[in-house]
Every structure is written in C-alpha cells, then in structure tokens.
Design a binder for these strands. Structure first.
Lengths: 120, 120
DNA sequence: GTTATAATTGAGCAATTATTCAAATATAGT
DNA sequence: ACTATATTTGAATAATTGCTCAATTATAAC
C-alpha cells in the first residue's frame, strides 16, 4: 500500500533520518549523470592516452594515431566523442585537423587521478 | 619491410619529431590503464551517487540502497568494485557493514568534475 | 539449534561500447 | 576535371557492463 521502495531492507535497518539528510545533499540525478558522462570520457585507455598527449601539445589526427598506436578511424571516433563533451577543441588547417584540450579542468582531473594511484 | 605502424597516414603528414617527443612524455600504458580504471569507477551514475553520498557520511548498504534507490544486490555489486579499487573502505558492525571513502582524492575528483560541467 | 535479516555472490540477460572495415567528404596540387 | 590524402562516418561485430534473480553466508536474538 505505502509507497516504500522495495529496494531496501527492513525499516529498522535503515536510518531514515540519515537517508533523508544525505539524499537532500547530493546533486540531482541529471547533474550526476552528466558528471558520470564526463568521467566516462576518461575511462577508456585510448581516450586517456589521447588526452594525455593533448595535454602536452596540440596534435593532428595522424600524429595522435601514431602516438597512441591505434587506427586513424578509431581515433577519429573517439575524438568525436570528446568533441561532443566539449573536452577537446579542433582547428582545421588545410587537409589536417588539429586538436587541443578545451580547459584546464581536464588536466587537473588527470593530475589528481595520477596522484591517487601513486600513493597506493 | 620497415616496421612502420600501418595505423597512420603518410610520412609527410606525421610530424615525427613531435610524435617522438610527446610519446616520450606520456605515462606508460600500464599506468594509463590503471588510471582509466579509476575513472571508470566514477563513470556510472549509480556508483557516482554512492560516492557522493559517502562523501557526506559513512553509510551501511541498506542506507545507500535507500538513497540511490537501487536494489541492495546491485549496490553490493558496485561496492565490491569500489572496494577492489581501494576507493571505499568498509567496517563491519554486527550484521551491518558501513562504507566510507578511502581518501580525499575521491572528493577532489568529484569537485573538479562538478566545476567543469558548471562552467559550460 | 532455529529463525530472521544484512550483506555477498554467481549466473544470466539486455544494453552499451571500442574497434574494424568500407565508403564518403574535404582540401590541395597537378 | 583528376588524383592523392587527411579526416569523418555508418554499419557490423565482439567484448564489456549493470542489473535482476536466486541462492548463500554471517551475525544476532530467541
């Protein structure tokens, strides 16, 4: 009858007060989903290599392909994903397209992650 | 004959000097894969909600399930993954298991990501 | 010991994803 | 116009992933 979510354990086990308090303090699900998408961009080794390379220098697709040792096509697919999330910018020059990082948060995220795994 | 990776474009298109320079400066693939795994932990909305909840307070599995509105089983599966990556700690008290964040980098990563999406 | 319940676990399934391949665009040089 | 080449794109495929369900483990109360 009551609209209790069946997900959880008995009422005695749940600290309802805590649950309400915490629920009220975490971001709404839409924002969380967006953040998760951003993190997902960093969660693939190929993409992470691309981002690390771009944190050193602006690069064209061919160069990225050579550095990461993955086909041009695969790189291009990944770059589109990164473009759509506004993580990288691109600049066309003749036949070639040069990519770069969009803002400093990208490098910050990578730096913090590096710190974390280094002190394991 | 030569061991050129076939991945890439013509030799004229590739800036070999740049490629070598950048290749030498990015972390080895093993480290990058590990970092990617860390980011992957943050890349699912359910897990990200768990982490955001834990950044506010230590919580038992039941409470997390109630906050995130996902089954206890699903939460437990995700917590195992987070445990294996040393992102969360747990503490047993009777029948219940309390989870908390392992170190401050976790909160830092979430904070930077939040900043990034807010200034889009 | 028996019962109740918090939490974990393994198998299975639907959905997502990273890459390859082939084809299409776009630009430069002839 | 024609050719060469840098990049993009769509479809297909194999691999991964998050959840559910059912069963199990661990602890507490009786």
């Amino acid at each position: 009858m009551t609209d209790d979510k069946k997900y959880t354990c008995s009422l005695e086990a749940v600290d309802l007060k805590k649950v309400k308090l915490v629920s009220g303090q975490i971001p709404e699900i839409g924002k969380t989903k967006f953040m998760a998408e951003l993190f997902k961009a960093f969660s693939d080794p190929t993409r992470l290599q691309i981002l690390q390379a771009l944190s050193i220098d602006e690069l064209c697709v061919c160069d990225i392909s050579a550095i990461v040792e993955v086909s041009v096509s695969a790189i291009s697919h990944q770059l589109r994903l990164l473009r759509n999330l506004h993580i990288v910018n691109n600049r066309k020059e003749g036949k070639m397209v040069y990519y770069s990082l969009n803002d400093s948060h990208i490098e910050q995220l990578i730096a913090v992650a590096k710190e974390h795994i280094e002190e394991l």
